[in-house]
């Protein structure tokens, strides 16, 4: 048996502590002011100190009170879904909306265990991208180039 009796509390306590320390370190650069004349640093320091306290209590408790273990981190879906959002951001202004949406949706769809690379899925994807282009770019006028500068160098 390991020393940590409640892994969930352990990790969350750690997250709170890191956030609190981060808040305190950066927040200490801001002027505190006084209660009657709160400076920009006043509220952040109060919040970070409270969070520090909660983080410490949670962390200490994880060694004393037994609790649940953290279930396996779904690495593949997490990477693919987050990746697909990032890919959309990277491509939309460079390669254009059509390519960006096609690539990002294909990437997110592959996160499912049901995903099969076959012609019907691709056809559906093409239709979805076309519908998205009509709705968002044409009808709602979101300023995204359909074909980005990557493909028309002029």
């Amino acid at each position: 048996m390991s020393l940590i009796r409640s892994p969930k509390d352990f990790w969350s306590g750690l997250i709170y502590l890191v956030a609190a320390l981060f808040g305190l370190t950066i927040g200490s650069n801001y002027s505190m002011g006084r209660a009657g004349q709160m400076g920009p640093g006043y509220f952040p320091i109060i919040l970070s100190s409270l969070l520090l306290m909660f983080g410490a209590v949670t962390l200490v408790r994880s060694f004393i009170v037994p609790g649940e273990s953290v279930t396996r981190f779904a690495l593949k879906p997490a990477l693919l879904i987050i990746g697909s959002v990032v890919v959309f951001g990277l491509l939309v202004e460079r390669a254009g909306f059509l390519v960006a949406m096609f690539a990002s949706t294909l990437m997110s769809a592959s996160a499912s265990s049901e995903f099969r690379f076959e012609w019907r899925a691709i056809l559906g994807l093409v239709l979805f991208v076309a519908a998205g282009a009509l709705l968002f770019v044409k009808a709602l006028g979101v300023p995204m180039p359909l074909i980005g500068p990557w493909f028309n160098p002029s």
């Binding site: 697909s84 990002s104 949706t105 769809a109 968002f136 979101v142």
Partner: peptide, 12 residues
């Protein structure tokens, strides 16, 4: 996948 796409477009 559609929800993810709508989220990306919406946020943009």
């Amino acid at each position: 996948p559609m929800i993810v796409a709508f989220c990306s477009i919406g946020v943009f």
